[in-house]
Design a protein around this nucleic acid. Structure first.
Lengths: 231, 231
DNA sequence: CCAAAAGTGTTTCACGTACACCCATGC
DNA sequence: GCATGGGTGTACGTGAAACACTTTTGG
């Protein structure tokens, strides 16, 4: 079983990646998986695992996310690296954390495709988490709050076509405060990064809202020129 | 010699830390050390080295900085973790990078205390760097530019007592653009985080400027309350 | 008295903020 | 026709930006 074949002159820490996956429903949620092996068997934890020798950190994060939650092609960004000596009770494990943003509605089913059970949790109603995952999650949440104001990453949480109301609700959820509708729309229209699709919602029990998409190409150009953005 | 005594079931990457040390002279500078061992022997590189089993990442960064440049107690913050597979030609090495800010004048001498030669370089006149250190340095510079605007980290580059002229020059160097003197002073005085020391410069060949220090305690309180800051 | 940097206010304009009503649709 | 969210404009105040001269000190 444990045929130990890789030897080094000095001890080496194990290297893992962990992903904090945010999704937006009525509230901002995180995806957690229930551990089926010790340590912390049965506890909830961030999806993640060991970095393979033939993959970069980004690749490892994407792979773990795919294997453990069925989520593929999500927005993934490195967050922080945690290297406390005793963060894993077994041995020294250094973890590179990532945060991911996905459209929760498109990933409602896959949450249980894997053998492990996965589920979405509200941020204010979390179970006890394994390892130092609560700390990682908190830092990820802070980073999301900070970053959403000056980078258009929040769009990753929405469907491709969205209404201005959904967009505003997304910002309100992440920033944790209500925004004025008219002022919000003024700001958004001045930023001028949305494409009006000339379509409206279907099957809503009220006046149907116009649909928009985010203009990624235009944003990329502006970003190259160093143009900023602020919500 | 190479008595290999630590064995694992799977191969493990080596883990290092690298520090991007910024100092302020007339210009913003970085401290580099000249490598005295292969690979890249003779090339300039960021100070850094292997993480020991009994120290955290932060501790490793502080130790390497001390050992290789004589700098102790500097402001150090984790930057990013680089995990490209072939970034070190010998074997897989993952590095956690840090950026450090020091008062260059207080660290002018120590630069050569260690066996390795260390020196300060202007950012626009860099030698060829070992490994992917140029990439790390660029990312560190970007981060510094971004962060200095909403966090009072720039003070780490100045002496404890400084003039408003020095403060402005620091921001101008980091942001890479000139600032209006009167508007700058207005902003600084409204932020209200400087303590007027009721002292003036000595030995200057012109009208002596008042000296100030940064009010760290007040900033810590405001930060807890979530109050922001903007230059 | 000259050089060199310190120090100081006002005006203008853009933007953030506060705020309330009618509209379209499905049931 | 009523409930539900969609969509729109104006007035006010604050803050950013542009801008030039006098003061102090050492040499």
């Amino acid at each position: 079983m444990s045929k130990k074949t890789f030897s080094y002159e000095y001890p080496r820490a194990a290297l893992t990646v962990d992903c904090v996956v945010f999704g937006l429903d009525d509230e901002l949620k995180v995806m957690l998986i229930q551990r089926d092996i010790p340590p912390f068997e049965g506890s909830w934890a961030l999806p993640g695992g060991f970095v393979h020798p033939d993959e970069t950190l980004d690749e490892a994060a994407a792979r773990e996310l795919r294997e453990e939650t069925g989520i593929d092609g999500a927005f993934l960004e490195q967050l922080y690296t945690f290297g406390e000596i005793k963060r894993d009770p077994r041995e020294r494990v250094v973890t590179v954390s990532y945060f991911a943003l996905v459209n929760l509605n498109e990933h409602r089913i896959e949450a249980t495709t894997d053998a492990r059970s996965a589920a979405w949790f509200c941020l204010d109603d979390l179970p006890t988490l394994a390892f130092d995952h609560e700390k990682i999650l908190k830092i990820a949440h802070q980073r999301l709050k900070g970053k959403v104001r000056y980078q258009p990453i929040g769009f990753e949480l929405l469907p491709k076509k969205f209404t201005l109301g959904e967009l505003q609700a997304m910002y309100e959820q992440i920033l944790g405060k209500p925004l004025d509708k008219r002022n919000f729309r003024k700001k958004i229209s001045k930023i001028d990064l949305l494409v009006d699709l000339n379509e409206v919602q279907k099957d809503v029990a009220h006046r149907a809202a116009r649909l928009y998409k985010f203009d990624q190409k235009k944003y990329n150009q502006l970003e190259k020129q160093g143009v900023l953005f602020e919500i």
